[in-house]
Structures are given as C-alpha cells and as structure tokens.
Simulated scan of single mutants.
Amino acid sequence: MRSLFLAISLATGAHAALVEQPVIYQQGGATLEGFHVYDNAVTGKCPAVLVIHQWTGLTDYEKRRCRMLAELGYNVLAADIYGQGIRPKPPEAGKEAGKYKGDRKLFRDRMLAALELLKADERTDTSKIAAIGYCFGGTGVLELARAGTPIAGVVSFHGGLDAAPGMAAEAGKIQAKILVLHGADDPFAPAEQVAAFEKEMNEVKADWQLVLYSGAVHAFTQKEAGDDNSKGAAYNEAADRRSWDAMKTFFAEIFK
C-alpha cells in the first residue's frame, strides 16, 4: 500500500515494531485519509482487518484499536468515510453521520474503497479479511455483509442494526459471518430493532451471532463516553473487555 506520508515505527518489543502510516485515497471524487498499521515482525501474508470509525470520524480511538489488532498479528486499515480533515464534534457529527445512514449506497462505496486498498496490500491474505466497526461503523459493517461483500466476517460493536428501506439482506447473498456485540440497554438500538435484525438474518439464513451485555448502553467500549448510563451512551469496562474477547474468539474461528 503506498502512502504520501513517511511510515512511523513504534517499538513494541525487542524484536518487533508496529509500523503505522496515514494513507491517502480517493472515492467518488472525495479525498480520504485512512490509517494503516502492521507488525513488521510478522512475515508473509496474514489475516487483515478493516476498521470503520464511529460518528466523529477517524480519531485516536480507532487508531488505538488498530494498534491493538496489529499487536495480535493482523494487517489493519482504518477507513475514512467522511473525507480528509472532516472530523466533526457533536452535534455536527450527527449530521455528518446522517448523510451516510441516509445514503447507504454511498456508505457502502466508501467502505468498499478502503477494503480494496486493504486487499491490494502485499501483506494481506485475501481469503482472511474481516471488518469491525464502532457505533456508526458498527452499522457500516452490517451494510458490508448485507451487500454480499466476499469477506470472512464482520463484527459490530454497539452499532445500529436497522436496514435501510429497500436494502435489507437478500436470501443467499450474505457471504460474511456476522457477530453483533450489543448493549442490552442501548436506547439507540432498542429491543424492537434487535428483534427486527434477528428476523432479517433468519429469513436470509445468514450465519450470525448476537451477544447482549447486561447493564451496557450505547458506546460501551469508549471511555470518552463517560460513565452515566442515563445519557444513553456510557463506557462499561466489563462489556468492553468481554466484547473484545468475543471478537478474538470469532476471528480464531473464521480465520482458521
């Protein structure tokens, strides 16, 4: 993968280092800036993970998750859905996210552009690619699955589960295995939405799993969300830890 920027190596051990670099790419006339990380001690081709950001765009939060994944031996690329330099704060973040939730085709196209970069990287084993996403990005990776994207699996962390009108999953189309990690008390994706998702997945005979975390609301993996559940979004240490472990178990299965 080529970049206009010099790679930065971060020492993580005596014999290994994470190499990270911004990656500039294009989609539909928009300039996007992703974030690529890998462990230079890993030789040959390896499984790869595409990371889709939450509603404020590609931030230090996603970069930290990318490093955590790279430390596990994965070739990792965080996509940029919004565009270079577009990193909105609330309430503007809601408006920006709404553009893509309201135009799921554009949302899918932005993710697919990043996926093509990841697939083209010399380190990627193209038979072993997954996508994960947080909140807005959790919604996104389910769109990749619904679109029939030929990847091994997707993991949604506290994402929206609803399908856009006319864009629900179709029988026989979903190729990716699906893992949904969800707060049992999430007010932004309540029980009715969960039930509708289950019905949709069952009707098309998708390979899916859903884990509900008690006492967890939206954004339960993000310390930046604070600890007040009454706001509807809050960090939950147990759900954060358990969901990360569930993702690792899922990857061990789909990448075997």
Rank of each mutant, 00 (worst) to 15 (best):
G57D: 06
A130Q: 04
A130E: 05
D186N: 11
I86K: 12
G160I: 10
V23N: 05
K173M: 03
P90L: 07
A168D: 11
A114K: 04
L10E: 13
Q26H: 14
L10R: 14
A184T: 04
H36R: 12
E203I: 03
G140S: 03
G166W: 05
S127I: 00
D240T: 08
A78W: 07
K105S: 14
G85H: 09
I8C: 08
L161V: 05
L32E: 10
G153T: 03
K248G: 07
A216M: 00
D240F: 08
A152R: 15
Y213C: 07
K231M: 10
D60K: 09
S9M: 08
M68A: 14
V211F: 11
G85Q: 09
E192K: 15
V180T: 02
A48I: 02
Y213E: 02
V37C: 03
N229Q: 03
R110A: 08
Y38P: 00
I151V: 06
C135S: 15
G232P: 09
T249A: 15
T249Q: 14
Q21V: 09
A164H: 07
R108A: 10
L210I: 05
V51C: 10
Q84L: 14
M111W: 03
Y38F: 05
K128C: 01
V211K: 15
V180L: 06
L6N: 13
S156N: 05
D80S: 01
D240G: 06
P88K: 08
Y100C: 10
L106S: 15
S9I: 05
S156C: 10
W208K: 12
K177E: 14
K256E: 05
A147N: 13
T56G: 14
H53A: 13
Q193D: 15
S9A: 15
L117W: 04
P22G: 02
L181P: 07
E71Y: 07
Y74F: 04
L112M: 12
L32D: 08
F220I: 02
R108E: 10
H158K: 03
I81D: 10
F136L: 09
W208P: 05
E20F: 12
Y82A: 02
G44N: 02
V155C: 04
A239Q: 04
A233Q: 12
A219K: 08
A238F: 08
A239P: 02
Y74S: 00
A246D: 15
D186C: 13
L69C: 03
Q193M: 12
E224T: 04
A145K: 11
T31Q: 14
R241K: 15
R110Y: 03
G94N: 14
T59F: 01
G13M: 00
E143S: 02
G34F: 05
T43W: 03
A48T: 04
E170M: 12
E116N: 13
F255K: 02
A131S: 01
A219R: 09
L106R: 13
G172C: 13
S156E: 08
M201V: 00
L112Q: 14
A239W: 06
M167G: 07
S230G: 09
R104Y: 07
E170H: 05
D39F: 04
D228S: 01
A17Q: 10
G148M: 03
A120C: 04
T56N: 13
V141R: 02
Q54K: 10
